[in-house]
């Protein structure tokens, strides 16, 4: 870089030079002042810049008066899913050509599928195929797991299974979480929610296994929505029934699939041993997550009364605890 040429000594002050210099100096002062005025912070330091609370997850529920609940017995998850969908009126009832589908799986832990701590890849893959077969324009699969996300999707087999079935895996990034709230909620106020994968989605499906959970009593389809939360979501364990109630208020899926082909009877929700599992040979599909979970509780030898969040969600008008009143179809595959 060349230095500017030295200014030659001058004998006299030149009016033109002086005016030029004054204008330059005045301009610099005005620019600095203007910049300061533009940046002036009229809020007090630390005052919140967060956007106001907004409901953040659209309502995907289907209010078509169709069958709300199907219970399928069997061992082959893909076959049970197909039979259950047929019993509810066929996949075409839920997925229309051109739909963009998001499947929220439970991929919480980086453990292999056979340990039953996560949604089974066979089931997820078949669901993806069914949606695509019904004409869905795209099927994305996501979760915000507890263990390392990439390891979870890889080790559970969900990632490879989704890719093989023609779906798209959405591994959450930091920027995918945006602040959201649930209308009428006490706990979910301006909380980071995994909203990016929901953009443009027209149908939402939840897929969860049946698992023992010491704090919540059981982890099934309603608890599964926990995986849409970001931030220090562990705090919600201090009011586990309250948070599951609010998750049920926040997320109104098209339908849910509760996989009780084998149920984790103890040591949940992580499991880790085949000894923690029991073959219960049941899959529950429904548009009412409360009823689905109320039936699921029976697979663990519990009742709906053991899970206070079910009654609380029902009191919000989200579903019904007394699943028998829904006349569930019982099938076997």
């Amino acid at each position: 870089m060349k230095p500017p040429p030295p200014i030659p000594p001058t004998a006299d002050m030149n009016r033109r030079d002086f005016l030029q210099r004054s204008v330059r100096a005045g301009g610099a002062i005005a620019l600095t002042g203007g910049l300061a005025a533009w940046l002036w912070d009229r809020r007090r330091p630390g005052q919140s810049h967060r956007e106001p609370a907004v409901a953040s997850v659209p309502d995907f529920s289907l209010r078509d008066g169709g069958r709300p609940l199907a219970i399928v017995m069997g061992r082959d998850r893909a076959a049970m899913l197909r039979r259950g969908l047929d019993a509810l009126g066929g996949i075409g009832r839920f997925i229309r050509p051109g739909d963009r589908v998001l499947v929220k799986v439970n991929a919480a832990f980086a453990t292999p599928a056979l340990l039953g701590a996560t949604s089974h890849p066979d089931l997820v893959a078949e669901l993806v195929r069914q949606c695509l077969g019904a004409g869905a324009a795209g099927v994305a699969v996501t979760d915000n797991p507890i263990n390392d996300p990439e390891s979870c999707f890889m080790l559970t087999g969900i990632g490879p299974a989704v890719a093989a079935a023609g779906g798209r895996l959405h591994v959450p990034r930091a920027s995918d979480f945006t602040s959201g709230s649930v209308a009428g909620g006490r706990l979910l106020r301006n909380w980071p929610i995994l909203q990016a994968p929901l953009r443009g989605v027209t149908k939402l499906i939840g897929v969860a296994p049946v698992k023992h959970h010491a704090r919540a009593g059981a982890s099934m389809t309603l608890k599964n929505w926990y995986g849409l939360l970001g931030g220090r979501r562990n705090q919600f364990h201090q009011d586990i029934n309250g948070i599951i109630e609010e998750l049920a208020m926040l997320v109104r899926p098209t339908f849910v699939v509760l996989d009780g082909t084998s149920s984790m009877m103890a040591n949940g929700p992580t499991g880790g041993s085949l000894a923690d599992l029991k073959p219960t040979n049941t899959m529950i599909l429904g548009t009412d997550g409360v009823a689905v979970d109320a039936f699921g509780a029976t697979l663990l030898g519990r009742t709906a009364a053991d899970l206070p969040y079910l009654a609380r969600a029902a009191a919000r008008g989200i579903g019904t605890v007394d699943f028998a009143t829904l006349n569930p179809i019982r099938e076997s595959a």
Binding site: F109, H213, R215, N234, H237, Q238, N267, P269, T270, G272
Partner: peptide, 22 residues
């Protein structure tokens, strides 16, 4: 610890312990 010292339910640690039996 919340349940030991502050009478708040929690047990997140138990939930996430990956060993079986925990």
């Amino acid at each position: 610890c919340l349940p030991w010292a502050m009478q708040r339910p929690c047990i997140v640690c138990e939930e996430n312990c990956p060993v079986t039996p925990k």
